[in-house]
Structures are given as structure tokens and as C-alpha cells.
């Protein structure tokens, strides 16, 4: 296994880099005025990335496709969210759908 020093150093570099990504916006914002179109573009970019994260984690584990139960659960969640169901119902229905389908062997 890799040494403790390497793990700690790797964690600190990854953590610092991640913090730098997250802090760039807030730090630059206080120095230069970010225009409204750019802010709107960044909001849209956040939504695009979060939906892509949702869809890829619903359908795949790394480079492998997932079983059908998980995307089925997420699909149910999407329909409920579109119909403005309460948040708790959406999340529990997704888990229950996936678990139920696996129970009957899908």
C-alpha cells in the first residue's frame, strides 16, 4: 500500500485544488464585477452539470452501465418532481422503486 505521507500529501493537494475551483468565483466577484449574462450562464452551467451528474449516476457506475432498477427509480422520482410532489415523497419513491424491482428480481 502507498505510504501515509503520500496519502496525506495527495489529499491536501486535491483538497486545495478543489477549494481553489470553488473560491475562484467568490474571490473574483469582490474584485471585478461579473456581468449579469455571465452570472446567468454560470447558473445554467451549474444546472447542466448537475443534471449530467444525476443522469450518469442513475445509468452508470464508472464505465459500466447500471442494472435497470436504479434508473427506473430515478425516472419515478423525475415524474413525481415534475408533478410537484413533496421532496420526501420523491426521494423515498425512488429508493422504494429500485428496492422493489430488485426484490422481484428485475
Amino acid at each position: 500500500m502507498i505510504s501515509t505521507t503520500a496519502i496525506v500529501a495527495g489529499g491536501l493537494v486535491l483538497g486545495s485544488g478543489t477549494f481553489a475551483y470553488r473560491a475562484a468565483g467568490p474571490v473574483l466577484q469582490s474584485r471585478v464585477r461579473v456581468s449579469l449574462p455571465v452570472q446567468q450562464l454560470m447558473s445554467t452551467a451549474a444546472t447542466v452539470l448537475l443534471l449530467a451528474l444525476c443522469v450518469t449516476s442513475a445509468l452508470a457506475d464508472g464505465q459500466e452501465w447500471s442494472d435497470p432498477a436504479r434508473p427506473a427509480g430515478v425516472l419515478v422520482a423525475g415524474l413525481l418532481a415534475w408533478r410537484r410532489a413533496p421532496f420526501v415523497v420523491i426521494v423515498l419513491a425512488a429508493a422504494a422503486t429500485a428496492a422493489g424491482l430488485r426484490l422481484i428480481g428485475v
Binding site: 448537475l50 442513475a58 427509480g73 423525475g78 426521494v91 419513491a93 425512488a94 422503486t97
Partner: peptide, 12 residues
């Protein structure tokens, strides 16, 4: 089914 809950949270 907890693996389905994570994408469902994001989607909601």
C-alpha cells in the same frame, strides 16, 4: 434502493 436516492435528490 439507496443508490437511486442520490440521483433522485439531485433531480428533485
Amino acid at each position: 434502493g439507496l443508490d437511486a436516492a442520490f440521483p433522485a435528490v439531485l433531480l428533485a
